[in-house]
Design a binder for these strands. Structure first.
Lengths: 149, 149
DNA sequence: GACTAACGTTTGTCACACTAACGCTAGACT
DNA sequence: AGTCTAGCGTTAGTGTGACAAACGTTAGTC
């Protein structure tokens, strides 16, 4: 076989390929909506975990605070989130999903779930569960909530 | 649990996290050498598969032809590869690893292998084999040599 | 009042992914 | 021999994400 046998033996390389493929598939699924993966991730975090200050939201969703600013600007402009100063601590803005944001999330979630199906099409059900378990063990994602993505 | 349960359930997200972690670990392992992952990948491809034109090398290693130009410039400047025009087809340069390049690859390979150990530390031997098999099935990496990474 | 730290924002750099276009070269076809 | 299509390598970009440092404002502690 060519194409550098040793590269195909590297778990880091295989993970990179798989993640790139995943990004492509999810990116294509979202492309028609104007949303990108961090829009989805931030909105999902707000809807699942409730309103939070930006630092907390960044921590929970895994985005850098500096990158969150732009994502919130776009979600806010679209009416999907609200930001209001915390009356008890004026350093902080409290971010929450709007009703329109919750509906938007439902839409994006459908697309993202369909993308997971396409991504995982080569695997059967048992293999899919195995993959998820191994990735969780590898990243500690089930034991360290708020891990960055 | 917080940190968006639904994000932790997404295979694409888990793959992204795992790949990011892999990139970090490999990047750190290579950082002291001045090499980056594409330097390693291109050099490994040349040493494993032999000399090739740039288009072929790009295909085998998975890098875009336009990005290969810069990587070869750096590898060439360091004396790790040679590029000569193909006497039989003047459209093409033939790229090969130099003796210094082969030594360099051995050095980088040691670091990259050690990085795989650190990456996979949370998994036992059987789980590591399982992960590799699942990733190969997912990406078709064992059946489509030259897949991009 | 001084000090340390949190919050959000700004400003950046870097690496990677990816595409289009161009000039030169090669091969096929008429 | 001329025309056409395509390959090769390069240039010139854009976009996204990852990541860090610094700053002004605010808060709590001493």
């Amino acid at each position: 076989m060519e194409g550098a046998e040793r590269l195909h033996a590297l778990p880091s390389r295989l993970l990179g390929l798989a993640a790139l493929q995943a990004d492509r598939i999810v990116g294509e699924a979202l492309a028609g909506t104007g949303a990108r993966k961090w829009h989805y991730a931030v909105l999902a975090t707000l809807v699942d975990d409730g309103p939070a200050g930006q630092a907390r939201l960044a921590e929970r969703s895994g985005i850098y605070r500096s990158d969150l600013v732009g994502v919130l600007a776009e979600l806010g402009a679209a009416g999907h989130v609200d930001r209001v100063p915390d009356p008890t601590d004026r350093r902080r803005n409290v971010v929450s999903a709007t009703a329109a944001g919750v509906r938007r999330l439902a839409e994006l979630d459908g697309l993202v779930q369909a993308a997971q199906e396409r991504l995982l099409a080569p695997l059967d059900r048992a293999q899919r569960a195995q993959l998820v378990n191994l990735l969780r063990a590898l990243t500690g994602a089930s034991t360290s909530p708020g891990e960055r993505g």
